[in-house]
Design a protein around this nucleic acid. Structure first.
Lengths: 341, 341
DNA sequence: CTGTTAGCGCTTTCAT
DNA sequence: ATGAAAGCGCTAACAG
């Protein structure tokens, strides 16, 4: 049996409440008693039982974070950890614990996310990789529980969202490609279940349509994985006429394309330009170095945690914050040769 | 205020204890009452308060997982998530929650890991990326708390460990290299604070010494990062005479080497062979495809969770389990040309 | 300053 | 089959 404040109270011949007060540095207890209690507690190996504390104070000091590990959305596997790590450190600053929930499939879950939160008394929930068409969304929005999502735009009274300005990121890349003289720009979509796939694609489509150069035959389905990028790269390499450039929805797929083109003897950026999205570190090590759109994962996670604590403490309603992306020019894009002719 | 069993008891004109029993499907309560209670609970939006349950039952149903996010050990950032994800899903099968602790630096932490565990009443702790010289180790070993570590060989009454057979993995790679006729084999060490760095290096050294071909000038310091691999690659490229092969302690560093060699016009595997360790998916997409030693991250994490539940439930003492690595032959190694001459 | 009392929400003997 | 009572470990008024 673990030692309790009661144990140390009998040991010292005082009462549990005095021990509690002393240990909690309350002002209405003598410095001397505090010192003694601390010492005895130390000697007896006392450790506070947070379960009891949290029950009595009605405050769990806990955040729930949900990560969606469906293998389908491959990308999340790589990015979720970047977010998680920062969240953890931020939460620690506030003295909060993080309990992790992994969701394999929204359909197979009997427990709703809200139920999980309520049972654990979490004060707020962070979501990484929420899928389109997850029928639990409605429930979250009306739950009253502070919720902030990453990579899923949703704002209501109690829900907020933070992500990179995906449309802005695509604009950055597209304008750069246009400046280089590219017009036949292929696009590789991300996984259909991720909202940002649609956002990125829509912006691409809009910008192509504005120039009257949009064509369905330039868009390819991907799922954020290296493998899907590779598969698309192979298909592109077999097109009767190569596009001027390809915009991959993320770096991983772009790297798959590099592999495919390399096997087919297509030179990047001489024969075709390539741009990714995410700015994964690996992009600096592939050949050629990948030009990409950077999103700051740390900033996103940090903002998310800040937002949720604002909601918890100040009751602010959820907002939707978009962080600025940045164009990282490396070596995978070049001026369109047809243009210079 | 959330609805409690007391609320539903008054609502139904029965007592809290009956509600509790009904909700918990105890045998000494009528099927009819169970049905009714369930329905009322449902209607009133009752959610069990796990804090209270856990306090009264003296069972937290919680596992703690510690991840060490010191930026120094870059590799852990990439591998930790692979482990974490599996742990999460495994723990869920047992009905356990996972609370996450991130450790930035063992020195700056005032709270010991054990204190964190005791306070949260966790039933067992999983460690990912434990560093050498972490002075909390001793305390863990004598804590009596079930602990299992990944990537850190430690076994005592209450501590266990699971990792890939790192020495065996190095043997696999070295023998392969020897078979190919390589003798001047350079080695890039991993981060010094990771135990497996030492294990991998020792085995390399041992095998080189057995052939009397060990030389300090063939070993380079790395830290598991792409960047450090790149830096070492550059240094190797400037050696008066190129080694026959280089064995990088992990894939990330190997990829850094590929980049460096590519810049210096050194052809892999024609001019020099290269082998990594980990079998990251990216290895299939770099040029040339990376030959490597595979470790199964899922199996490791799964074994770790299984082990900790065995310790929790059956009081088994900690064991040290080593999983088999596998040689994955791709394209980065070739027969030594000097050998064929 | 220290002690007394009550109770957080739940489970669990033990009665009835 | 249901109820009464006690208590998990702790904090928080309120007294003294």
């Amino acid at each position: 049996m673990a030692v309790t404040i009661k144990d140390i109270a009998v040991e010292m011949g005082i009462t549990p409440s005095s021990v509690s007060k002393a240990l909690n540095e309350k002002s209405d207890v003598s410095t001397d008693l505090k010192r003694k209690v601390r010492q005895v507690a130390q000697e007896m190996g006392y450790k506070k039982n947070m379960l009891a504390v949290r029950l009595v104070t009605m405050k769990s000091n806990t955040l729930g974070v949900f990560i969606f590990s469906r293998t389908k959305i491959r990308n999340s596997e790589s990015t979720a950890y970047k977010y998680l790590n920062i969240m953890l450190n931020e939460a620690k600053k506030y003295g909060y614990d993080i309990v992790l929930f992994s969701i394999e499939s929204s359909l197979s879950e009997n427990k709703s996310y809200i139920d999980l939160c309520r049972e654990r008394q979490v004060e707020g929930a962070l979501f990484i990789g929420f899928e389109n068409n997850d029928y639990h969304l409605e429930e979250l929005v009306h739950s009253g529980l502070p919720v902030v999502m990453i990579e899923k735009n949703i704002s209501s009274e109690n829900t907020g969202c933070v992500m990179v300005d995906n449309a802005g990121g695509i604009s950055l890349g597209m304008n750069y490609l246009f400046t280089l003289g590219h017009e036949k720009i292929a696009f590789i979509k991300g996984h259909f279940a991720a909202e940002l796939s649609e956002i990125r694609f829509s912006q691409y489509r809009k910008m192509m349509e504005e120039k009257n150069i949009y064509s369905d035959r330039l868009v390819f389905e991907g799922d954020f994985s290296l493998e899907s990028g590779y598969a698309v790269g192979l298909r592109i390499s077999e097109m009767p006429e190569l596009p001027d450039a390809v915009f991959a929805s993320n770096d991983l797929m772009a790297i798959g394309v590099i592999r495919a083109f390399s096997e087919k003897g297509i030179k990047i950026p001489d024969d075709i330009s390539l741009i990714g999205f995410d700015n994964f570190e690996i992009g600096k090590y592939v050949q050629p170095k990948l030009t990409t759109i950077a999103q700051n994962f740390s900033d996103i996670a940090e903002s998310a945690v800040t937002m949720i604590f604002n909601m918890i403490n100040s009751g602010l309603h959820g907002r939707s914050v978009l962080l600025d992306p940045e164009l990282i020019v490396r070596e995978s894009c070049a001026i369109n040769k047809k243009y210079t002719d």
